[in-house]
Design a protein around this nucleic acid. Structure first.
Length: 592
RNA sequence: GGUCGCAUAGCUCAGCUGGAUAGAGCACCUGCCUUCUAAGCAGGCGGUCCUAGGUUCGAAUCCUAGUGCGAUCACCA
């Protein structure tokens, strides 16, 4: 049983014995550093059941606990706070129970129902940028956190592979491409992105021309020849025109290949993929179905809507008057398709920016109205935008921070710093390169994941991401330090410490207390879909370890038993760091 | 205008379902490498928790109103 649960029973028993009153619950918190003790019981809430002076009640309860509970070594009361000192034996026993568990903090899969987590979901007309990076890191990490908390997870994405924006790149390529193909130095997604920009330039200059000829700007925007051509191309695509479809397939494949490189660079993966071009038809089917059952209604012009006014929202269109699908149609189809493909899925998580909060509110509501059981378990993992000092990133205007470039820059920075420190002379070039990548990515991922998903991030490319303090590299560094100790200790290792009584150093006890939190932190992070909780926890743990490391000699301990214990403690801390970082998608280095 | 989100140190952020004197990092200042990796440790400086009311023994946290910033309210995605 957990410490708090045990104590809760005893506090209730104490109130029963002392006052003959039933306490519904007990409020605990970690004892603040400036007071003696390990766990604190807040007395105030008890006053509702037991009348009296909180200090006196605290004293009485404390005395009872000390007399009746072995774990409780002592206590003190400050104002209405009962600080309880727990015996070292308890912490020692706890440590013994986890020290050889390399899965510490993780729960074996217990749930039959799986969760499908969608993330990334790019358009196929431009390369991935920093905004996608946040999305991908969040989605991947939440997937891993859910797994660690005992759920089965499928990682997926929806690839937005059709529509007018794709035709824009295709058209520009047709006009100006001269048969260009991706090369070593020009990835497919970059190539296609260039033509998307090219289209926009062409479009803008045509508008200017038309305006100069006397058209209003509004009219010019609609009448620009390239736009008309792109629209025509979309119609051809929908009609299945062989030439257009062939070009579409070719260019999309270039983009997919380019994305794959980026995903691999960033270290994320997917279990399954969905393409909008494959699911929008199923969406249409269910719109027809919902029309029959009265979930939707048809307006005079033939468009189909869902009336959500009773739910406090507006009417929402689900099918255009010309019968073509909108975004909502496709999302309805995709959700249903996923359940068809993976019947064990009982819920889904959508990692999508907060600009689409309304869309998902509506989508979930519609799916409920359509009567799907699983619609009760849909979650929009909504996150804030990543903005630059100059404002929003815009692909067409070239004001984006490119994902591949960013990863490379992080790696370069790691290299610079490593070279200055010069600790890796005996590493081979390829080892060094791998390490720079590990550290650079660690810095980037931690930087993004440590902030609460719903807050927006302001990213200033001029100010580089830190490698000191509350950062990924600091945590990685601590891990590497411990590995160094373990390597040294290994030669003289002995698993013979049958210590039964122990007086912990204050730093040792603090570390064990911190370790004790980890399983709960994983569960909280899973419940709240928040990698930030893991990041913050890991930082606390690492800070505690460094303080221990710098103040207590591990290999130079006074006795053999102490040394063995400290090595084991260090090892367990490093395993916990590794596990925590793993669910953030961050790798650990053996040295740095 | 309606709706949703955010507002904490100069900057970037923690602060769990209300609890003790609001915490970290960066920056700035002091110390610490002959000793397990100084990407570190020990310490200092720095706060009207946006404002005003309310609930409570107790509010950064909950409620109401307001201010500022962002998003959204398309037969775009």
């Amino acid at each position: 049983m957990k410490l708090q649960e045990t104590l809760e029973l005893h506090v209730k028993a104490a109130i029963q014995a002392l006052f003959e009153k039933e306490l519904p619950s007990v409020e605990f918190q970690a004892t603040r550093k400036e007071f003696a003790g390990d766990v604190t019981v807040v007395v105030f809430p008890m006053l509702r059941v037991v009348k009296g002076n909180p200090v006196v009640i605290g004293e009485q309860v404390g005395q009872y606990l000390q007399d009746h509970v072995d774990l409780v070594k002592g206590f003190n009361v400050v104002k209405g706070f009962l600080n309880i000192e727990i015996s070292d034996q308890y912490y020692f026993d706890f440590f013994q129970s986890i020290k050889n568990d390399d899965q510490f903090g993780f729960v074996k899969q217990t749930d039959d129902k799986a969760i499908m987590v969608e993330y990334s979901s790019p358009n196929t007309n431009k390369p991935l940028h920093l905004g996608h990076v946040r999305n991908v890191l969040l989605g991947y990490s939440v997937s891993e956190i859910l797994k660690a908390s005992g759920r089965k997870v499928y990682k997926t994405q929806i690839i937005n592979d059709r529509g007018i924006h794709i035709c824009k790149s295709m058209l520009a390529y047709q006009k100006f491409g001269e048969g260009e193909t991706p090369t070593e130095t020009l990835k497919g997604d970059k190539l296609v992105g260039n033509y998307y920009v090219k289209f926009d330039q062409e479009y803008k200059s045509e508008i200017e021309e038309l305006v100069a000829q006397g058209q209003s700007e509004e009219a010019a925007k609609k009448n620009a020849p390239v736009l008309l051509e792109a629209q025509e191309m979309l119609l051809k695509w929908e009609a299945g025109d062989a030439e257009v479809v062939a070009l579409w397939e070719k260019m999309n494949q270039w983009v997919y290949d380019g994305f794959d490189v980026t995903y691999k660079n960033i270290g994320v993966d997917f279990d399954t993929y969905y393409y909008e071009s494959n699911t929008y038809l199923l969406g249409k089917e269910f719109v027809a179905e919902g029309l029959k059952t009265g979930v939707f209604f048809k307006k005079e012009d033939g468009s189909v809507w869902c009336d959500l006014t009773e739910d406090g929202l507006d009417e929402k269109i689900v099918l255009r008057s010309d019968g073509t699908a909108v975004y909502m149609t496709q999302d309805i189809g995709t959700a249903i398709q996923r359940i068809k493909d993976y019947p064990d899925v009982g819920g889904m998580v959508y990692t999508v920016g907060n600009e689409q909060d309304y869309h998902f509110k509506v989508l979930f509501l519609i799916l409920k109205k359509l009567g799907f059981e699983w619609a009760e378990n849909l979650f929009h993992l909504s996150y804030g935008m990543v903005d630059l000092p100059s404002g929003k990133m815009k692909s067409r205007e070239g004001t984006v921070v490119d994902a591949d470039d960013l990863i490379q820059e992080m790696s370069d920075t790691a290299e610079e710093i490593s070279k200055e420190l010069g600790k890796l002379e005996d590493y081979s070039e390829s080892e060094k390169k791998a390490l720079y990548r590990t550290i650079g990515l660690g810095a980037l991922k931690y930087y993004i994941l440590k902030v609460d998903p719903k807050k927006r991030i302001l990213f200033d490319p001029k100010e580089s991401i830190d490698f000191q303090g509350n950062t990924g590299p600091f945590i990685q560094y601590t891990y590497a330090r411990i590995q160094s100790i373990l390597r040294k200790a290994n030669s003289e290792a002995s698993e013979t410490s049958d210590v039964t009584t122990f007086n912990f150093h204050e730093k040792e006890k603090q570390l064990i207390k911190q370790l004790e939190q980890f399983p709960e932190v994983i569960q909280n992070a899973a419940d709240q879909h928040s990698p930030a909780l893991i990041a913050n926890y890991t930082y606390e743990l690492v800070k505690d370890f460094n303080s221990f490391y710098q103040n207590v000699s591990i290999l130079g301990a006074d006795t053999e038993a102490e040394k063995t214990f400290r090595v084991a403690l260090s090892k367990t801390v490093s395993q916990t760091i590794k596990n925590a970082l793993a669910v953030l998608g961050i790798e650990v280095p053996e040295r740095m």
